[in-house]
Design a protein around this nucleic acid. Structure first.
Lengths: 199, 199
DNA sequence: GACACCTTACTCGGATCCGAGTAGTAGGAT
DNA sequence: ATCCTACTACTCGGATCCGAGTAAGGTGTC
């Protein structure tokens, strides 16, 4: 009897990474952290030890993964090794499918700031947007280097670094919008009603 | 003597909205909630009563805003009315400037899911991507309607609805990437190494 | 061989986020 | 007059997130 996917699906992208790395082999949390750092996965999620242990515990509580055994090497702290439960692997695939199919509501900081662009005034808004564009360009370049290293030096297939292609596409789209808007402000084609900074 | 912007800048976009709405006039939290709902600002942040009161308290604690007085209408619960502090308004502008200039690290769910596209298998991945594209298109259409209503019926200047233009640009960029990738999978131009679903 | 420093592996507590709950009022229907 | 529903305005507690802390073992060095 195949059981239903747990109702609880952790919001933290770190949970996805934990389930992903456990596909390779059972592992204790500290080993996961080491693996994530080695692979420089810090663009997909934020890795902090506190969150990692919490996430692992939550996944275990909700039946995605389970502790196999606790081992001790020397006099060091105990390790608890986790692996997918018998259903966990199938659930993971289902959950992935769901995340891909259904865009989730997210609230990027920049979106809410854009609403108040008027408060900054023309000059300052245009200048800030240009600085943002430069910072975005820097990120694109960084990502590009990492991408090339993975593809050429490590001979990684495109599928394995596809998230970098997605990240680049989104950064470039944002950059274009930001630059276009800065230009519109400077050229006066974006009508700029005088906002009284509170009456 | 002009004091420094507080080190604590709430991560929650709701904080930005609170500071924004207080530019118009001093207000108690419940009135803010009503204003946010009326203006359908739910694409920029998530409004829950709990978070609202927490956010307002945090902003007051850190000196952005302050309570003016507590009033009571009839036998209803007390209201606490808040307004910007003498520095609050300037800090708000500075903070906005900072948010616009410096892209923040954020971790959208989809980005982390894309890394594991391989796990879904070719057919399922392509199908899921196509469904996502359709959902994104639906959001674009919804946004478009709201945008037109604001522009044409309410005669809003572009600057006041500029965040909708940004949101649309980003949704369209994502949609294009998603569709292009689905096509590449179907046409076999995206090399698909057989992933053993755990050895 | 003693001191300093890095690594291993995890715990703890504070801050934040959020849905559900509470408690009183107002307005309308029966 | 009484009930019912909806609104007003806020509190509470659980879940999550995260940086700092802890404690023991290994490694190098003079």
């Amino acid at each position: 009897m195949r059981s239903e996917m747990p109702v609880k699906r952790p919001a933290n992208p770190l949970a996805l990474a934990v389930l992903g790395v456990l596909l390779e082999q059972p592992m204790h949390p500290h080993a996961m952290a080491t693996a994530f750092r080695e692979r420089q996965m810090d663009s997909a999620f934020k890795l902090t030890t506190g969150s990692l242990y919490d996430t692992v515990r939550a996944l275990a509580r909700d039946g995605w993964i389970e502790a196999t055994d606790t081992e001790q090497v020397g006099g060091r702290p105990m390790r608890t090794v986790y692996r997918h439960t018998s259903d966990g692997q199938r659930w993971f695939t289902e959950w992935l499918d769901e995340i891909v199919r259904e865009p989730s509501r997210e609230y990027p900081r920049f979106l809410s700031a854009v609403s108040y662009l008027g408060v900054l005034g023309k000059q300052r808004a245009a200048q800030a947007l240009r600085e943002r564009a430069a910072a975005l360009q820097a990120r694109v370049s960084e990502g590009e280097q990492a991408y090339r290293a993975a593809r050429e030096e490590h001979k990684a297939p495109r599928l394995f670094v596809i998230e970098a292609e997605y990240a680049r596409a989104m950064l470039q789209a944002e950059m274009q919008w930001v630059l276009r808007t800065a230009e519109e402000i400077e050229q006066g084609t974006l009508e700029w009603p005088e906002v009284s900074p509170h009456a």
